[in-house]
């Protein structure tokens, strides 16, 4: 059975629900604390997730300190071996800061030169493009955002590999639907080989239907959901990881 390493830094705070979402897809998990993790434990994992949070207090810039830690060096090597890597919110910022996702930085939320500050809200993204996590999800899905520094900037926008764009509920990528001023409404990017996903919104808060507010999912009103563990829209992302890892273990066998 494949094992996913959950990398935690001082200040990580979404590890609980990230673990729950991975477990729900039948994946084994292992905690990898940045300050005490052994290389052998790290290497024993088949994939890695960096959950959201405020690693090292967002000092300098979100993700900047964590990106210089030894465990991220190991992650770079894992990336070269094309192991799947998922960075959510602060994890996304760390992947950008470290260069594992090249050409990318996450700046403070700002629309039309006005800072929006921290935003907690549900938005829509249209999912397109190639990453092993988003494979086959080509659709528009609701997802929560919770960040103060989520505005994607690129050294060269043409080189960016976006897989999600902020949009209206019917899929229009308007300026109004862009919550944080992100370049071209980009919400998530992948790398050239598709094994890395750096995503600012929180799929682990949408892997069960019960996590969706009524105004987002009126037809799935909680009073009507018979299965309290009914998979939500983002279960698919974690399921894709499980499918990928399971198919690999079959190949290896």
């Amino acid at each position: 059975m494949a094992t996913v390493g959950i990398i935690i830094f001082p200040g990580t705070n979404c590890e609980r629900e990230t673990h729950a979402a991975l477990s729900f897809s039948g994946l084994n998990t292992r905690w990898l604390p940045a300050w005490s993790c052994q290389l052998s434990d790290f290497n024993a994992c088949d994939a890695y997730v960096i959950p959201g949070g405020f690693s090292y207090q967002d000092r300098v810039r979100a993700g900047a300190i964590a990106a210089t830690s030894p465990i991220v060096e190991w992650l770079r090597i894992a990336n070269e071996a094309q192991k799947p890597i998922l960075g959510i919110c602060n994890g996304c910022q760390i992947l950008a800061q470290s260069g594992i996702i090249p050409n990318t930085m996450l700046a403070a939320n700002q629309k039309n030169t006005t800072s929006t500050g921290f935003i907690c809200d549900w938005v829509y993204v249209s999912v397109t493009g190639q990453s092993l996590f988003t494979r086959g999800i080509d659709t528009i899905l609701p997802i929560p955002i919770n960040h103060g520094e989520g505005r994607f900037l690129f050294k060269n926008t043409n080189d960016a590999l976006p897989v999600m764009h902020y949009c209206t509920s019917d899929g229009r990528q308007t300026d109004a639907a862009n919550p944080n001023g992100s370049t071209q409404n980009i919400a998530a990017v992948t790398n050239a080989t598709g094994n890395v996903l750096a995503i600012m919104p929180h799929p682990e808060r949408g892997y069960l239907t019960r996590q969706l507010p009524h105004h987002i999912a009126p037809n799935q009103s909680k009073t009507l959901v018979h299965d309290p563990q009914a998979p939500g829209p983002w279960h698919r992302l974690f399921h894709n990881l499980a499918t990928h890892l399971n198919s690999q273990s079959v190949t290896h066998a």
Binding site: R16, A21, G117, F118, C120, D121, N146, R205, R210, K222
Partner: peptide, 16 residues
């Protein structure tokens, strides 16, 4: 006011 507070962390919120 409440848009500036994280009300979904931990993933257990039912009514926000």
């Amino acid at each position: 006011v409440y848009r500036r507070f994280d009300h979904g962390v931990r993933g257990d919120t039912i009514v926000s």
